[in-house]
């Protein structure tokens, strides 16, 4: 693209000095009369390499930025990854105790989509938005309703486009400080107080490795639904076999457990997603600095070739002029 423009410009500049000019004053008058002012570059013989040089400079700057971003993401990732791996121990007992019920069919579904606030991190936000959309389609029906609670700016931007009516809440600026449990607990408290639900479905990108993230859904049942499920048997039914201290009834215990499970799952989900975001940003920035390097190589080649071409032309002109004088 830039090369074509350059070539065109080069040809034009090469052509302009070949205009026969018997008398300089007359030629100047004629050329200003015939051609537009930018064409009157008399005496310019070489091709302008300014365009390529500017472009090379900007590509070099972009490469520097992407390299720096990659470094930042890599150093942040290490801290977040340990926290994420530690936080997995929070929800695992719940899954062991209550089980996971992804296929449960209830009236009020609330989809909690966890996305990131910042972009430039590959496709992780669109993945979780895509899964949320599919789930929304799956769970909405004539007598059912499903709502979104969105964490993160990027998911909000994508979901506003086609399902703004179903958005119930949106939360941003979550990652200003490093994610901690207190913060997520306050947030989970806010969500529980403001949203009516039968089942909460938390969607996030689970971190497997720096290059692999799996979109994951965790279902949290409301105490009433959980009680119904436990009567129907299954994993929740085993709750009766536990000995419980204190005088709470089963429904109270289930309510406390469901609330605490939600905050734990949300904490783990937010951390996993932050971890995936950093990993994705690392690989995205790695490939973009590699692309910038490739581009720079190509541009350098063009630049050198054009420069050499102009030198060759000048040499030919001088030599042929000299031989004409001799002969």
């Amino acid at each position: 693209m830039a090369m074509a423009a350059l070539r065109r410009e080069g040809r034009r500049l090469l052509l302009s000095p070949t205009v026969p000019n018997p008398a300089p004053a007359a030629a100047a008058a004629r050329s200003s009369a015939i051609s537009p002012p930018e064409m009157t570059l008399l005496g310019v013989r070489s091709i302008s390499t300014q365009v390529v040089r500017n472009r090379m400079k900007s590509v070099k700057n972009i490469q520097k930025i992407t390299k720096a971003m990659k470094m930042v993401a890599a150093s942040k990732l290490r801290a977040v990854q340990t926290r994420t791996e530690n936080s997995r121990g929070l929800w695992q007992p719940f899954t062991a105790l209550l089980g996971d019920a992804p296929s449960v069919d209830v009236k009020k579904n609330v989809i909690v989509a966890i996305t990131s606030d910042k972009g430039l991190c590959g496709g992780i936000n669109s993945t979780s938005v895509k899964v949320s959309r599919a789930l929304h389609k799956l769970t909405s029906g004539p007598e059912k309703e499903s709502k979104y609670v969105i964490l993160g700016e990027k998911g909000k931007v994508q979901l506003v486009r086609d399902s703004r009516k179903s958005i119930e809440m949106s939360v941003t600026e979550l990652q200003k400080n490093p994610i901690n449990y207190t913060q997520i607990a306050v947030l989970a408290d806010d969500i529980l107080k403001n949203v009516e639900y039968d089942a909460l479905r938390v969607i996030f990108n689970k971190f497997h490795s720096v290059i692999s993230f799996k979109p994951t859904m965790v279902t949290i049942l409301s105490p009433e639904v959980a009680e119904k499920e436990s009567e129907a048997g299954g994993k929740i039914g085993d709750l009766d076999s536990y000995e419980i201290e204190g005088g709470e009834t089963k429904s109270e215990i289930l309510q406390n457990l469901a609330e605490f499970q939600f905050s734990c799952v949300l904490y783990n989900g937010a951390l996993e997603n932050a971890c995936s975001e950093l990993g994705a940003r690392m690989s995205a920035m790695d490939s973009s600095s590699r692309n910038a390097g490739d581009m720079l190589d190509r541009l350098t080649l063009t630049y050198n070739r054009t420069r050499q071409a102009s030198i060759t032309t000048e040499l030919i002109e001088i030599i042929s002029g000299a031989s004409a004088l001799e002969g």
């Binding site: 703004r164 009516k165 958005i167 119930e168 809440m169 949106s170 939360v171 941003t172 600026e173 979550l174 200003k176 400080n177 901690n180 449990y181 207190t182 913060q183 306050v186 947030l187 806010d190 403001n194």
Partner: peptide
Amino acid sequence: REKVHFSVAKWTDGKQEKPTV
């Protein structure tokens, strides 16, 4: 470890209300 910072916005009829921090 107990720093809390985020902004919440409720939505009604497809419109975002003023976020609270």
